[in-house]
Amino acid sequence: MLEVRGLVAGYGGGEVLHGIDLVVNEGEGVIVLGPNGHGKTTLLRAITGLLPPRAGQVLLDGKDITHWRADAIAAAGVIHIPQGDLLFAEMTVTENLLMGAYHGPTWSERSARLGRVYELFPWLKQRGGQLARTLSGGERRMLALGRGLMSKARLLLIDEPSLGLAPITTQQIYASIHKVKQGGLSLLIADENANHVAGLADRVYLLETGSLVREGPADDLLRDKALLESYLG
């Protein structure tokens, strides 16, 4: 459903991504593995319109969305859970979630989605009236995920789901992403830890200094400890 061809992107004078080719098929869980600072975040930002690519194409169901605005790409169902969560700090948990469904049709449809997200994260329901800025790191990540799931997402892009989280929270986060995947959503996850994503991945790309250096089925790549060690350290 998503196809990236020869994507080049960067900031200012520097080029971060040097021609990325990547595919995510319907219902597939694709992981981009790479160490910090090698372009994972830049890749997701360039796909979802936050950073205009310098060259290359992003296709959604064969349609060229390379130069669409971020809000139009989101409305098309490509939902990006950004690094740092970027919550609406002075809005309540519930308000944050409702904003995730901005593109939703009716209040009733929105409350149905709210119910589904509460089922996944019962904790969010108890904290509905709390301001987002008062949440802990793990709670913020759950809210960021929940907010993304409030949309009519077809493809979820998640930037380092476990960044900065305690091990126990990390487990919870990946468990809920697993449930989301079982619901049929396609995933593109950028991560630096191969162990975390093992259960989610169908296919894996290895990203090194702005280029994809290996691609293959998760079962092969993630089992190759020597290879992973040499890339991720």
Binding site: T48, G49, L50, R69, A70, D71, A72, A74, A75, I79, H80, P82, L86, L87, F88, A89, E90, M91, E95, M99, G100, Y102, H103, R147, S151
Partner: peptide, 16 residues
Amino acid sequence: RAVSQQQEAASLMSIP
């Protein structure tokens, strides 16, 4: 309010 608080996230929520 969302746009005023976190413009980038607002656009990721498909808010123009």
